[in-house]
Design a protein around this nucleic acid. Sequence first.
DNA 1: AGCAAGCTCATTTTT
DNA 2: TGAGCTTGCT
Length: 780
Amino acid sequence: MDYLKGLNEPQREAVLHTEGPLMIVAGAGSGKTKVLTTRIAHLMANGVDSFRILALTFTNKAAKEMKERIEHILGNSDARNLYIGTFHSVFARILRAEAHRLGYPNSFTIYDTDDAKSVVKTVINELNLDDKHYKPNTVYNRISAAKNALVGPVEYKNDYYIQQEDMRSNRPLIANIYDAYAKRCFKNGAMDFDDLLFLMYRLLKEFPEALIKYQSKFRYILIDEYQDTNPAQYEIIKLLAAQHENICVVGDDAQSIYSFRGATIQNILQFQKDYDDVSIIKLEQNYRSTQNILKVANDIIANNKGQIPKNLWTENATGEKIKLVRTMTDNDEGKFVADAIQEQKLRNHYNNKDFCVLYRTNAQSRAFEESLRRMGIPYIIYGGISFYQRKEIKDYIAYLRVIVNPKDEEALKRIINYPVRGIGKTTIDKAILYANENNITMWDVLERAKEFGYKAGTLEAIENFVLMIRSAQSMMVKHNAYEIAFHIGKQTNFVKELFNDKSTEGVARYENIQELLNSIKEWIETPLNEEDGEVGDKGLGAYLQQITLLTDADQKDPNADVVKLMTVHAAKGLEFQCVFVAGLEETLFPSGLSINSREELEEERRLFYVAITRAKNRLWLSYANARYRFGSLVQNEGSRFLEELPEEFLDRTFAGGGARNQGSSFNNTSAFDRMHGGFGAAAQAEKTYGPPPARKKETPSYLPPKPQAPKVVEHKPAADFVASDTSNLQAGQKVEHQKFGFGMVSKMEGSAHNPIATVQFELNGEKKIMLNYAKLRIVE
DNA sequence: AGCAAGCTCATTTTT
DNA sequence: TGAGCTTGCT
């Protein structure tokens, strides 16, 4: 019973309460994972067979961590056979075994978002609809939302309100697209991410034998991050738990941040009504953050209505005040963060991995990357395009997909003529047309190419291709995923082709393929779950299933000593010594798309709450006066959330042009800036903008008066306008700007990284031009 | 057929 | 800004 030591009272209670429905309301940093893992270990220590425990998480990372911690507690490897995983991966595994019931091959493909959107696009075009109006992205999101609400194509078409909505947006035919899309996926033997939930639900609902099988199998069910479950997940859980009712859900309504994906807090409230005697345990002691950080977080979230009442408290030290920093531009914000990290490393002996930079949108990462790179601080970005989304990797994998499931038209289209083998666009278009006309798959057409009147040369090319795929298919009986992958790379000249490309990108692509092959090999060598026979051992099918459900975060080493950059969403469940929350500006955080209703705004606020509560020791909040948004510099107001911060816990500073912000004896300038013109851009900027304003008490921040940009007299540059190298620009030179026209440089200032020219334009008067961004042509 | 240049358009967040 | 797509050229 050693594992019970080190738990506080409610934690212990949650672990020991094994029978019957239980809801754990776990505040940020209250030891939720510890409770979940100890609970599972406790069940196992008391003789529950690991096959009978189902634990569902939102990320593979969380699942993996839980498994490891359980193994650690138990001191053996019994945990290997637990059903721990994401909703998607666990359901994929079950669906693989039950696919036949739904009319799917058990070798079904899982389409990622890109594949799915591509099918949507294909279908839109085939229905002769305009893809400018029916944008694949929009339509896909609509379909996705429908599936997550368990609305199938038929219900979609028959639902009055949904139809009204589509009428209003002038897209009445989405129902038809949805229907065609679902049929096409089925024909391709493919499920998209949402299908893994939707079809799992249908499996349990429509096939009582399947329902009984899994209901009785899973005697104990645990759900992590319950506040982020959507209706599909909710219904599935309910069905699975109905027999034993040993269901434990863990969540925090204050951290619900996925409503855009259909998640609803209603599930938390509904849970209490679904079962007769639900026990509720609250974990309210925070072990993560300083008092100051927690105080700020609590104050922020108190602005939301209708929270489950909780009192999150901590015994930790008071800690430092929260630093609120304003900069001129997003690039300055980047520089400020890199500077501050450097300073903290020196002053407080932190490692790189103690720092995390959080932002609202992935696009914001650029400024931080640049400044960190310039300072030589190693970093890693979570959430960009993942390894498996790179073109060469997707192409390579497409071969494997076709071998496993030749009905997969998306994969087939990718590789049928790559590397080039004389099966061009015309041939492919024809094949798809024939397939649609005869209601067969594209692969069927290729196999029976003779019947469709292709020219001799084309026919030969097709037949060779079909033979090659078939021979690889026959390998599946005796060979594992690695052997087949290696074989196909050689056979198709895929690898050789990349090897011969000596351009920088070519070399990188070749290396990526090598890395892919290595990772397949590695996967082959890791031991199986005992019960995994049903998934198909180390075959290609099992491999493919596994990688499509892998997230970007799963591919990166969380222990590497590097600064981490990620969106707030991606940071859920993580913690860091030092956290920077950047881009706290209206229309960015909160997002401009979420300020029109209270619900959306409250979700943004929860997101901010999640961001703040990632920090253990030190927290910086930053925002920029102006930032580059789709190409041009846009002014922004500070976020309304900043006004909700309790003033007494804040330390306000201004860090204009990337200077150090506080305290050091050299005051506000970096050595570099001092060498290049006194106080540099920072001091200059401070004169212009002043320090960040303290909280305005009365003025509501809604609809802030927009500072009117001075009207520009448009200048049409010559067609051959070419920006000059302005690194040696001097006062007195004459220049041309694309928008402002001709002018004379009157003054040069700023640092060498960030030179600023003051120009007297003939038509537009005096402007300050940041040479790093603007394009100027030197006239003389 | 294949490639390069130019054009348009989008930006929330992710399994 | 930059990705993806169409157009036009070879």
